[in-house]
Design a protein around this nucleic acid. Structure first.
Length: 264
DNA sequence: ATTATTGTTGGTAG
DNA sequence: TCTACCAACAATAA
């Protein structure tokens, strides 16, 4: 469940479930996910207390009481949930916890196995490489303008999804933000004016806040909560033009040809 | 059976 | 050194 808002929602859950708790027992079953190996992860974490859980972009960082760190990415299909007695379907790791004599269990589930749980002593490149996080750092317009100006060929949507430009904006959030900003996702990144960039930043803030609020409601309402993403062929909520879909940089993109201006 | 999917990485070319 | 492009990764749901 992996863009900034979902990962932030996950982080808030994990803080409630795990912060200050001691890991009394854990499992890790998949060598593709647990690095450097499931065994190394289990050995190093068992008996430790979780002192902090941070997020940057789509990455999570667990800090343990002895300084060890675990960097976690949910990939495309990873999530955490309270675990029961029986292992869940596609469970790849689990934590037995104790905090003030209360015991609990948290599971990591990931059908597609693109997620990561990487043990390290220091911050890893995947983490340090990330650009500013729109939610926790805010969007620096000057810096964003500089980075976009360097993109001579790529579209504004692809540039926004580059994790070194802004950390945490993925396909859905980029689509929603550009719709809000009334900018065609195919527009060249380098063609954005200062005003465009300000509008895009507002669009990003808007969609992130909106999606986090949706998650906080906890509806788990299975229907699409987004205004534009996945709504090809339906009327634009703003101008009623039928939404169009195309591929951009290998990712499905939906937008409105009626009210999103193309700038080349 | 076919198609689409919320993401990152590593290789290659320029 | 930086940008741009693409295949690979894997498993499910419609």
């Amino acid at each position: 469940m992996p863009e900034l808002p979902e990962v932030e929602h996950t982080r808030r859950n994990l803080v409630r479930w795990m912060k200050g708790a001691r890991i009394t027992h854990m499992t890790a079953t998949d060598a593709r996910i647990a690095k450097p190996s499931p065994r190394a992860l289990v050995t190093r974490l068992t008996g430790r207390v979780v002192s902090a859980i941070d997020r940057k972009g789509k990455w999570l960082r667990f800090v343990l009481d002895d300084g060890a760190r675990v960097f976690c990415h949910l990939g495309m299909t990873g999530w955490f949930e309270p675990g029961g007695a029986e292992p869940l379907r596609f469970e790849r790791a689990s934590f037995d916890l104790v905090k003030k004599q209360k015991r609990s269990r948290v599971s990591y589930v990931d059908s597609r196995r693109w997620g990561r749980m990487e043990l390290a002593q220091e911050d890893i490149p995947s983490w340090t490489r990330l650009g500013p996080d729109p939610l926790s750092d805010g969007i620096d317009l000057e810096l964003l303008a500089t980075k976009l100006a360097r993109r001579k060929k790529s579209s504004i949507k692809e540039a926004l999804m580059d994790q070194t430009v802004l950390a945490g904006v993925g396909n859905i959030q980029a689509i929603e933000a550009l719709w809000k900003a009334k900018i065609d996702p195919r527009s060249r990144a380098g063609a954005m004016t200062v005003k465009d960039i300000r509008t895009i930043a507002k669009g990003i803030d808007w969609t992130i806040a909106r999606t986090i609020a949706d998650w906080a409601k906890g509806d788990e309402g299975e229907d699409n909560p987004f205004l534009v993403y996945g709504r090809k062929g339906t009327p634009c909520p703003r101008c009623k033009t039928l939404l169009r879909r195309a591929e951009l940089g290998g990712r499905t993109t939906t937008w409105c040809t009626g009210c999103q201006a193309l700038k080349r």
